[in-house]
């Protein structure tokens, strides 16, 4: 089984995001960028499937600027077999990304896509589901546990209030949640080997995909700061003030 893992280069999760002065977006100049943490989990899962013999080949895809190659190499160092880099300097929307991924899935004849459930930069959480819909494949989102047997895959999903188990007939799309696995640290010998693995260079045009944005960003602002709290005397007063705020 061929597994495809899309990865995104995002602002490092340790870095405090700052809004650009013109409110057009988040300032990414001169800040540390890393692989989206959910994608690290996807990569780890794909590599484990390879190690277990369930996957025959694990391919990593990134759609983004030239620097996205670094993110691909990080995945190759963890154990992915080869990479595909779709070069674009546009900040593509989930729909465009899903369309490109669909074209790659078809070209590669992949049977499984493992994607992060969302990217920590814009938190859309849409790409995996859109891709499954366009491919007309079953999807198991927010995966907590996955198990492959024969032509199907059992996915325990993290839902409100517990875990939901679904059985998918392959081919399928799985999106990963935080508790699926604990990604390993890249080993030095594997970092060295990664540079010998191939990264195919592509552009959105290669897939004939229309990437015109459907959304317009009006403005980006910092979240409102937390205002000071009030200490209440007793439960009655608490309930009264909650009512007054319109919360209950």
């Amino acid at each position: 089984m061929k597994v495809l893992v899309p990865v995104k280069r995002v602002l490092d999760y340790n870095v405090k995001a700052r809004v650009k002065a013109d409110q057009s977006g988040v300032d990414l100049s001169n800040v540390k960028m890393s692989m989206n943490p959910f994608d690290e989990i996807s990569v780890e899962e794909a590599v484990r499937m390879k190690e277990a013999g369930t996957a025959t080949e694990a391919i990593v895809v990134s759609i983004g600027p030239a620097k996205a190659q670094e993110t691909i190499r990080t995945a190759l160092a963890i154990g992915m077999d080869r990479g595909i880099h779709v070069l674009t300097d546009e900040d593509l929307e989930p729909l465009a990304i899903a369309k490109i991924l669909k074209a790659i899935v078809e070209a590669e004849d992949a049977q499984l896509v493992i994607a992060g459930k969302q990217a920590i930069d814009n938190d859309y959480g849409a790409t995996g589901s859109m891709l499954a819909a366009m491919l007309d494949w079953p999807q198991g989102t927010f995966a907590n546990t996955v198990e492959t047997s024969g032509g199907s895959m059992t996915v325990k999903r993290e839902v409100d209030g517990g875990l939901q188990t679904v059985k998918l007939t392959l081919p399928a799309v799985v999106t990963t949640d935080l508790r699926l696995n604990e990604p390993r640290y890249a080993r030095l010998p594997d970092i060295m080997k990664a540079k010998k693995k191939t990264i195919d260079a592509k552009t959105p045009e290669d897939f004939g995909v229309d990437t015109t944005p459907r959304l317009k960003t009006v403005k980006v602002t910092e979240p409102a700061g937390r205002s000071a709290g009030v200490i209440v005397e007793n439960v009655e007063e608490l309930v009264a003030s909650l009512k007054k705020e319109g919360v209950i």
């Binding site: 670094e70 190499r73 990080t74 160092a77 640290y185 970092i191 060295m192 990664a194 540079k195």
Partner: peptide, 22 residues
């Protein structure tokens, strides 16, 4: 000759992550 600036960057990133996280 096999060691490129990119590779060195990847090695530093990997070592840095190991140092700070582990």
């Amino acid at each position: 000759s096999d060691t490129t600036a990119d590779l060195v960057g990847d090695i530093l990133d990997g070592a840095g992550r190991f140092a700070s996280d582990v």
